[in-house]
Design a protein around this nucleic acid. Structure first.
Lengths: 203, 203
DNA sequence: TAGTATGCTTAACAGCGTTAAGTGAGAGGA
DNA sequence: TCCTCTCACTTAACGCTGTTAAGCATACTA
């Protein structure tokens, strides 16, 4: 009897339905403005059913973030491979990072801005296998390439990577969380940051 | 009869008590982990009393942030005045900004990270008189001084200011909201960011 | 002294994330 | 075919949240 496999397939399908419903709502309205009950309503199941598939609301969020950040990591990896000028590669990588955040503001918020609150100290996002960490590793590789090619002066790779990340994150998060501030043109701001940092690092 | 004035004084005193209690709790445990009922308990009044003095929880928060950012603005202004080398002044201003955020992480979170959510579009923090904006103005003045002194190449003052802000904010917010990430030494990261940006802007 | 304004409280509403207990359809064995 | 058991799912509830409407005393005014 293949009924067992069929049921397993159906379970997996429902899990995906929950994920899809939650993603759509979270992205459209923001994590804290969407209740488990609303997600349940969307998939036409009772709220408690969700808890049979995800431990809690945060886990649901985490699963969605992983999906999305897998996309980011993939895109950044592609960029890293395509060119041969390491500086240009790093530049494009940074731009991809910021663009990604601006195009998926709620995903970005969830992973890098709101993040876990005090209780429980949820460190899932920092596990090495996590997609966010993979993207970080990519950036690190980009920085390392610039140093190896003697385009950047010799410095602490980790520190430079973290600084580049902070630069990108600073712009991304400010633009996302203070949309009403009188910002200059977004592209100008992004390019200015990237160019200034790169210029400041040059050998 | 000075009773009217006395009552006014007492009202003002209670308002301050609420503010003090809320600040202590918010700073210690974070805004979203503190309920209005807990604030009320601390001042030994009923929860609803708070609503006679503050419109809602966000207003309470806003009042506290204003207090704290007044301190930041004051400190940054003092720094701007004390030296004559504009670059050194800017450097110290940036450092003061980041240090302030790291020393008051919950205040910082409240004003620059968590911030208002979608509903209502709360733009109070962006009013020109607000203390946050005053601090921004200070930074802007610092940048302008560097350009006027021909230390920086001629560029869009607004864009450069926003970039410097984003640089400082990027580091501050990442350090605050991802405390478990394997960061390099904080001071190293902060100095690297500031020095790299300044070097990149040099005439 | 009667009436009113003021400061605060009690009780409640509608929502939240989450859990314990219960239900009912379908599979598997006799 | 009938019984039992498994398991996906639901109902009901707990203890919280921010917030509001209504009520109650005290203190001031006329």
């Amino acid at each position: 009897m293949g009924s067992k496999q069929r049921r397993e397939r159906e379970k997996e399908a429902l899990r995906q339905d929950i994920l899809d419903a939650a993603r759509e709502l979270f992205v459209k309205e923001g994590y804290e403005n969407v209740s488990m009950r609303r997600v349940a309503e969307k998939i036409e199941y009772s709220p408690t059913t969700i808890y049979l598939y995800f431990e809690d609301k945060a886990s649901l969020l985490y699963a969605i973030c992983e999906e999305t950040f897998a996309k980011l990591a993939k895109r950044m990896e592609a960029i890293a491979r395509e060119g041969d000028d390491p500086i240009e590669g790093l530049r494009r990588g940074c731009r991809a990072y910021v663009d990604f955040g601006l195009k998926n503001p709620n995903h970005y918020k969830l992973t890098f801005i709101n993040h876990p609150q005090h209780p429980g100290d949820d460190k899932r996002h920092l596990r090495e296998e996590s997609m966010g960490m993979k993207a970080y590793g990519n950036m690190r590789a980009g920085v390392e390439a610039c140093i190896k090619a003697k385009k950047f002066r010799e410095t602490d790779v980790e520190a430079v990577t973290q600084m580049m990340w902070a630069g990108g994150h600073g712009i991304t998060s400010l633009l996302i969380s203070m949309p009403d501030f009188p910002w200059v043109k977004k592209t100008e701001l992004i390019d200015l940051m990237i160019d200034t940092l790169i210029k400041g690092l040059r050998a």
